[in-house]
């Protein structure tokens, strides 16, 4: 690579600060071959995070609020709302935890079960520390003090149409039970903006069934513009971190009691989302032009 290109790349996606890299390496439980027990390869993960940095800083222009509320050490469970067809929200939360959290740390996203069947992506995701969202994996990660990222809405959240934006879908109770069992603090996160990256108007259910994918959205640009229509709109994204919650409840309490805690997390996410929406213009489609600050 020629040096002007390298300079441009560095300007566009500056490398991670040495102290960030050092802090990440320090907590990574890597073996002699450089992998951690779940397949995270810090060198690969850092390269991937670095190249995604322009998405965070320049494309989605992410602003975070209250990231200092994430407990600085020990196991943590991050619980955001899920939106926007493709899981950019997960990527942005993971980047925030590397670029802005003190100390920085790798986030272990809990990915869909069909992910390991995808070539390339499954390999890259594993190297970057993502793990299949199985309760056994979750428990295992928490017991070894990892920071995990859970989207209790799953595809119900990402697959919803624009007309249901910022409506939280149903949360399961499994994540709270795991948090109770492993005594893990839960940090609710409101992600505002990702909802508007792909304003889906309709889901083609029959095609999704045919392709064996969770949903196939129709947006004003997709599938009309083909692959170009799959580019997310450059919406400014805000991430609000709520206060960490710790409860003293028997993990085997009946569903009704656990549901109270689930609702507490949902209420906090809704409250933070409303707060952000109230102070930023309602992002309607025509107003979304690249580079225009929201």
């Amino acid at each position: 690579m020629t040096s002007p290109l390298r300079a441009l790349a560095d300007w566009f996606s500056p490398p991670l600060a040495p102290e960030v890299t050092a802090a990440l390496r320090e907590v990574a439980q890597t073996n002699s071959a450089g992998f951690d027990p779940w397949g995270l390869h810090p060198e690969t993960a850092e390269r991937a995070l670095r190249s995604a940095r322009w998405l965070y800083e320049r494309y989605f222009r992410v602003r975070t609020h209250g990231i200092e509320r994430v407990p600085p050490a020990g196991r943590v469970m991050l619980v955001p709302n899920h939106s926007g067809q493709l899981p950019f929200d997960g990527l942005l939360v993971a980047l925030a935890m590397v670029l802005e959290a003190k100390p920085p740390r790798f986030v272990r996203g809990m990915v869909e079960r069909w992910f390991p069947s995808l070539p390339f992506i499954s390999t890259l995701f594993t190297r970057c520390g993502q793990v299949v969202g199985d309760p056994e994996n979750c428990r295992d990660l928490l017991l070894r003090d990892q920071t995990i990222l859970v989207f209790p809405e799953g595809v119900r959240g990402t697959g919803k149409t624009y007309f249901h934006r910022y409506e939280l879908q149903s949360f399961g109770t499994g994540f709270i039970r795991l948090a109770l069992e492993t005594r893990t603090p839960v940090v609710p996160i409101a992600v505002v903006g990702c909802e508007e990256t792909y304003p889906s108007l309709y889901n083609i259910d029959w095609l999704a069934r045919l392709l064996g994918v969770p949903y196939v959205p129709v947006t004003p640009f997709f599938p009309l513009l083909g692959p170009l229509g799959a580019v997310p709109l450059p919406v400014q994204v805000e991430l609000c971190f709520g206060p960490a919650r710790r409860w003293d409840l028997d993990p085997d309490a009946p569903d009704a009691e656990v549901q109270v805690l689930v609702d507490e997390v949902k209420a906090e996410i809704t409250r933070m989302t409303r707060e952000v929406i109230a102070r930023r213009p309602d992002l309607q489609l025509p107003g979304l032009l690249p580079g225009v600050p929201a």
């Binding site: 890597t30 002699s32 071959a33 450089g34 992998f35 027990p37 397949g39 390999t123």
Partner: peptide
């Protein structure tokens, strides 16, 4: 053994 390693890394090692 000690830990996990990807197949391609293992080949190189």
């Amino acid at each position: 053994g000690e830990g996990v390693v990807s197949w391609s890394h293992a080949i190189r090692l």
